[in-house]
Design a protein around this nucleic acid. Sequence first.
DNA 1: GTTTATAGATCGAACGTTCGTTCGGCGTCT
DNA 2: AGACGCCGAACGAACGTTCGATCTATAAAC
Lengths: 196, 196
Amino acid sequence: MEKIDGRTKLLEVGTRLFAERGLNGVSIRELAQEAQTSISMISYYFGSKEGLYAEVLRQQFASFKEIHQIREQVEDPVAMIEEYLRWTFRRHRNNPHLLRFYTSELTNPTPFFEPIVMPVIDEVIVAMAEVIEEGKKRKQFREDIQPTNAALALAGMVNYFFLSLLATENLINHSPEQDDQLVHQYLSIFTKGVAA
Amino acid sequence: MEKIDGRTKLLEVGTRLFAERGLNGVSIRELAQEAQTSISMISYYFGSKEGLYAEVLRQQFASFKEIHQIREQVEDPVAMIEEYLRWTFRRHRNNPHLLRFYTSELTNPTPFFEPIVMPVIDEVIVAMAEVIEEGKKRKQFREDIQPTNAALALAGMVNYFFLSLLATENLINHSPEQDDQLVHQYLSIFTKGVAA
DNA sequence: GTTTATAGATCGAACGTTCGTTCGGCGTCT
DNA sequence: AGACGCCGAACGAACGTTCGATCTATAAAC
């Protein structure tokens, strides 16, 4: 039974509670009680409640930077989109809270959206738009696709699908084995298709 | 210069402010000031702040019921999906607040999600899943599509796309003329396609 | 090896502010 | 005169923050 330090415990509890009810939906008294510490510890470690929230956000969105490593490793646009989908699935499955912060900040931005969240989201969208552009050049993707719109649609599909799983509490039931089917389905938007 | 009654003004202001910052992000004092009335009017007309929020939610999600009329009018599955997309585009363009309530309630549900929001969302998803199922029977859609997942993905794509427009404040710039391209792009997931 | 000093972690009480709600009264119509 | 729309003051509760005191553990001094 090892005792983890109070700061870590607060970050842990903050992540869970802020994800569930947002910045304004959680009080420092609830945070302190859940972390089995006192209310003054939040100001002590993070300056303020908003300081704790900002630190939680930074932790949550740190994984977005991985997109650059993935892009270096995978050269082919189709393979890259596939890898992007699997990477996103993996991230959401490993961290069920990320999606809530992501969507919540996009819908009702806090003062931390612009400095913390927007830059990392932007990097991913720009990166994927470039990948799609390259795919068009290589005639792998349809001509009528607008890269930035397509990158947004792609991210939207995946995120929203997981959001629906989250809302119906099926996130745990969705196993890695189902990824293949989803990847294939989503990928097909970009590949040459025949309209009915 | 006609004077609208206080109740309507409060609903109007409540819709805008709750959409921007959520139930917990807006105080009754701010609502009253913005509506140029006094703080006691909220309890007077709606019982409580939550009562006002609930009424706003009911107004916002009333349009979801239109799905049944549309389904009665359009018989062909492909045409139905197309009509669904146009209907959704139209709704989001006419009411820029709807999407925020939709996503916000899905991500961080208030006590009103279950009684007010969930039922109408469910009706739309079930209806579209049935349409997709019918499309599979008629060999219009690919065999490997799972109807409910596909209905969720479809809704996700559209909603998230508009959410991104909202976040970048481009919603006004997106004109009805661009709908055709989007409809075609999104529709292609369901039509028989060739993987690259 | 014992004592002392020092820095960090933790606490609960208290502060001032803001919150949502209630209530008595005032004006304006029917 | 009675019903309704409306107001501002007041209430208790909850909020986030601050502060002085206490505890702990390591380092320094003897």
